[in-house]
Deep mutational scan, measured.
Amino acid sequence: MKMAVISEHLGLSWAELARELQFSVEDINRIRVENPNSLLEQSVALLNLWVIREGQNANMENLYTALQSIDRGEIVNMLE
């Protein structure tokens, strides 16, 4: 549920979040190519990849820290 809210509000910031979460330029470009027409779909794809990559370590605290690092703390505030 929280992931959906984050995806809805990320907009163009999804790529900046991807870099903050240590995704490569290739990963970011692949997300763009696979989801060409929708920032929402790109955001969802990023968060899904992050959960798959991090497994047990994919917790909201880590995601909140990354969001705050890219000056998107207002998204965190909405969810708390």
Rank of each mutant, 00 (worst) to 15 (best):
A45P: 02
E16R: 11
N57K: 10
A15E: 14
D27P: 01
V44M: 15
L46G: 00
R30P: 00
Q22S: 13
G11D: 09
L63E: 03
F23R: 01
R19H: 14
L10A: 01
E61D: 11
S43T: 02
A66D: 01
L39W: 07
M3Y: 03
N59E: 15
L21V: 05
A66N: 04
S13W: 04
A58R: 12
L67A: 01
L39A: 11
W14T: 02
W50R: 01
A58E: 09
N57I: 03
E26H: 11
N77Q: 15
N77T: 14
D27L: 05
V33Q: 14
R19W: 07
I31V: 09
F23A: 03
L63V: 10
N59M: 14
L21K: 00
L79C: 14
G73I: 05
G11P: 00
V25P: 13
N77G: 13
L63I: 14
E16I: 06
Y64G: 07
S69N: 11
K2N: 11
N57D: 11
L17N: 02
E34V: 07
Q68D: 11
R72W: 01
Q56G: 13
R72A: 03
L79Y: 06
E80H: 12
R30N: 10
R53E: 04
K2W: 15
A18I: 02
E20N: 11
E20C: 10
L47S: 01
W50G: 00
L40Q: 13
L10Q: 01
G73M: 05
G11W: 01
L46W: 03
S24C: 06
L63T: 04
L46R: 00
N35Y: 05
D27M: 08
S7Y: 08
V76C: 12
M78D: 13
A58L: 15
A45E: 13
L39N: 09
Y64I: 07
N37D: 13
T65M: 10
V25K: 13
S69E: 12
L49K: 14
F23M: 03
L79A: 13
N29D: 14
I31F: 02
P36S: 07
S13R: 05
Q22P: 04
N35M: 06
I31T: 02
L79G: 06
A66K: 07
L17F: 13
I31L: 10
R19I: 04
E80A: 11
V76D: 00
A45G: 08
S13E: 08
L67I: 09
Y64S: 08
A4Y: 05
E74D: 15
Q56D: 10
V76T: 08
S43C: 04
E41L: 08
L17K: 02
S69G: 11
Q22I: 07
L67K: 00
I70C: 06
N37T: 11
P36E: 12
R72L: 04
L40C: 06
A45C: 07
R72Y: 00
L67C: 02
E34G: 09
M3W: 07
L67M: 11
A18E: 06
E26C: 11
L63W: 03
A45K: 10
S13C: 04
G11C: 02
S69V: 14
H9W: 08
E26P: 06
R72T: 02
E8I: 04
